[in-house]
């Protein structure tokens, strides 16, 4: 799993340096870029993939550019840095909230838990429903009509491994027959019609 890329938007240089110090201790998060103004961050958004914008609650409420961005950037999620004692409407959705008054241990725990949950969720979605690269390779061979032993020879793995992969493929896709897997592979461009015709 790649690092979660978090951009920081907060106007205090000192606080930003402090946050950078703390975030450096968290595995799985990369805090960059660090900006003090929205216009600065806006330029970077086009060029760099950013998962989450961590923004102070004062700016979030008062800067109209930010509220517009909240509505219009579909792939970006938000997190709040509490610098002032103000409430934000609960309809806004945040990944996490931290406060400049949180102590170090508390912050580290909170961020570690956040990363763990994210990584975990990511793994579940890809391992339960999506095929791994290896499984796609096996599927391709099955769809082309190769037997388990032929696949094993071709990919230098044991037949037992091939069977395990095939079981996983079937349970992920819910497709049981070879013809069904072939149609699936064609529909999703894992193989093309020419490959199939060549066989006949």
């Amino acid at each position: 799993m790649e690092n979660i890329q978090i951009a920081l938007l907060n106007d205090s240089f000192i606080i930003n340096r402090g946050l950078q110090f703390i975030f450096n201790k968290i595995k799985g998060i990369h805090l960059s870029p660090i900006c003090t103004q929205w216009s600065e961050l806006e330029n970077i958004l086009d060029k760099q993939t950013i998962d989450i914008i961590l923004i102070n609650n004062h700016t979030f409420i008062t800067d109209s550019n930010v509220s517009k961005a909240y509505k219009t950037l579909p792939n970006i999620r938000w997190a709040i840095l509490e610098v002032e004692d103000i409430e934000i409407n609960s309809l806004f959705n945040f990944e996490f909230k931290i406060s400049i008054y949180d102590n170090e241990l508390y912050l580290i725990n909170k961020l570690n838990t956040f990363v763990e949950n994210k990584t975990h969720l990511h793994n579940i979605s890809s391992s339960i429903f999506e095929l791994s690269e290896r499984e796609k390779e096996i599927l391709r061979q099955v769809a082309l009509g190769l037997t388990n032993s032929e696949i094993a020879d071709k990919l230098f793995i044991s037949q037992h491994t091939v069977i395990t992969h095939r079981k996983n493929i079937t349970s992920k896709l819910g497709i049981k027959t070879i013809s069904g897997l072939t149609v699936y592979a064609l529909l999703n461009d894992f193989i093309n019609m020419d490959d199939v015709n060549e066989l006949k």
């Binding site: 819910g174 497709i175 049981k176 027959t177 013809s179 069904g180 149609v183 699936y184 529909l187």
Partner: peptide
């Protein structure tokens, strides 16, 4: 039976 199920599923 499995083929019919697969067709529906696909």
């Amino acid at each position: 039976e499995e083929k019919l199920y697969d067709i529906k599923n696909l």
